[in-house]
C-alpha cells in the first residue's frame, strides 16, 4: 500500500476519497495507508486478538472501498473509517460472543500468551532495565486481559477514548451514539476494570488526547476539539 506519485503525496483525506470515486486506482490505498496503523490499533485492542483484528480490518477496508460513495462528508474521513472499523470489530465480537461456550479464563498466565499476541507488537524499547520491562509487560497483559472481559461496546469506547486518545465527541461519532452514551460506557467499563486492576501501578497521569480525527487538512484540524473524556 503505497502513496501514489505526484498529486497523491499530500492531498487531504477528502481529496483522496474523491479521487478514488473518480477512478484513481491509487487513491484509496494512499488514504488507507495513511491511517492504517491507527485503525489497526483500534481493531487489535477492540477485538483483543490479532487474527480477528486482521479479519475485521479487512472487512472494513473492503466495505470502505466499495461504499465510499456513501460518505456524506459530515464527519472527518478518518472518523468515517474508524466507524467502519469499529463496526466490523463489534460485528465480529458479537458473533464470537454468540458462539462462545466458555468464559474468558481466569488463568492470567494462560491468558498472558494471548495477551502477548493481542498486543501484536513487542514492547517498545523504552527502558534498559529488563526487570522493569518485564513488569511493564506483565502489567500490560493484565490490563489487556481485563479489557477483554468487558462487553464489546464498553471495550470499544475505552479503546477509543482512553487508549487511543480520541475525544468523547469523536468517539461518539465513530460509535454512532450520543456523547452521553460514550461517557457512560467508559464510566461503566472503568468501574468494571477497577477491581481487576487492583495493585497495578498507574504510573503517570493520563496524557491529553493525542489523536485528532482531522482529515490531514490544516484548515479542518482547527475544527476538531478534544472535549473532556
Amino acid at each position: 500500500m503505497t502513496t501514489g506519485p505526484g498529486e497523491l503525496d499530500a492531498p487531504d483525506d477528502r481529496k483522496l476519497l474523491s479521487a478514488h470515486l473518480a477512478g484513481n486506482p491509487e487513491a484509496f490505498g494512499a488514504l488507507f495507508a495513511r491511517h492504517r496503523d491507527r485503525l489497526w490499533a483500534v481493531a487489535l485492542r477492540t477485538t483483543g486478538d490479532p487474527e480477528e483484528a486482521a479479519d475485521a480490518l479487512q472487512d472494513a477496508m473492503i466495505s470502505a472501498f466499495r461504499r465510499a460513495g456513501a460518505y456524506r462528508g459530515d464527519a472527518a474521513v478518518t472518523t468515517w473509517l474508524h466507524r467502519i472499523v469499529v463496526n466490523a470489530c463489534l460485528d465480529r465480537l458479537r458473533r464470537r460472543k454468540v458462539r462462545a461456550t466458555s468464559p474468558l479464563s481466569d488463568d492470567l498466565e494462560g491468558d498472558a500468551d494471548r495477551g502477548s499476541l493481542a498486543t501484536g507488537t513487542t514492547r517498545p524499547a523504552g527502558t534498559d532495565d529488563p526487570v522493569k520491562a518485564l513488569l511493564d509487560e506483565e502489567q500490560r497483559l493484565v490490563v489487556l486481559t481485563a479489557l477483554g472481559t468487558l462487553p464489546p461496546e464498553q471495550r470499544a469506547a475505552l479503546v477509543l477514548v482512553d487508549m487511543e486518545g480520541y475525544s468523547v465527541q469523536e468517539a461518539a461519532e465513530m460509535l454512532e451514539c450520543p456523547v452521553g452514551t460514550v461517557k457512560s460506557r467508559c464510566s461503566r467499563g472503568r468501574a468494571k476494570l477497577l477491581p481487576l486492576l487492583e495493585g497495578l501501578d498507574p504510573g503517570n497521569p493520563p496524557p491529553a488526547p493525542r489523536v485528532q480525527a482531522g482529515d490531514h487538512d490544516p484548515a479542518r484540524s482547527e475544527e476538531v476539539t478534544n472535549s473532556d473524556a
Binding site: 490499533a41 479503546v159 487508549m163
Partner: peptide
C-alpha cells in the same frame, strides 16, 4: 478511581504499527 483506570489504559495504548504480514 476513574482516573487511575484511565492512566492504566493510556499506558497500555502504545503505538501499535500494523504487522507486515497483515
Amino acid at each position: 478511581e476513574q482516573q487511575r483506570v484511565r492512566r492504566l489504559l493510556a499506558a497500555t495504548g502504545d503505538p501499535t504499527p500494523m504487522p507486515e504480514e497483515v
